[in-house]
């Protein structure tokens, strides 16, 4: 069975736990957690990830900066990125997608939606 590596970048431990708990229901995922954008970049260095899930509003480095940096790195140019955020305005969504995010999910997170997006981006069946 294929295994996929997913990076979850979220400063709120509660939200991070919720995302990780939900993703653990999908088989074949290895989940790595990061507290903010900088921590996320550190975890990305030298590792191969199949999916990045990130919040926008985080201390030190926000999610949009992270998306921008990741998209400029040739080794992560094609890795799918999912934004999970409280920012529900259309311009925020457009900005995130323009920077290179693949999906934009607003909080409060519907776990079913997060799982559906993850399965689709990783081409997981079931």
């Amino acid at each position: 069975m294929n295994t996929y590596k997913v990076l979850v970048v979220e400063d709120s431990p509660t939200m991070r736990q919720l995302i990780v708990f939900a993703l653990k229901r999908l088989r074949g995922l290895t989940i790595v957690e990061a507290n903010d954008g900088v921590d996320g970049l550190k975890k990305l260095t030298g590792e191969k990830f199949d999916l990045i899930i990130t919040d926008i509003n985080m201390p030190i480095m926000n999610g949009l900066k992270l998306v921008s940096l990741v998209r400029h790195d040739p080794s992560y140019k094609l890795v799918p990125i999912v934004i999970v955020t409280t920012e529900g305005a259309e311009e925020d969504r457009e900005r995130a997608l323009a920077l290179g995010a693949n999906e934009y999910i607003t909080k409060p997170v519907q776990t079913t939606r997060l799982l559906e997006v993850t399965k689709r981006l990783l081409n997981l069946s079931g």
């Binding site: 709120s12 431990p13 509660t14 939200m15 409280t86 909080k107 409060p108």
Partner: peptide
């Protein structure tokens, strides 16, 4: 802080 996180992230209060 955790109560705040729950109310923001799980309930969706601003």
């Amino acid at each position: 802080q955790i109560i705040t996180e729950i109310v923001i992230n799980l309930i969706g209060a601003e």
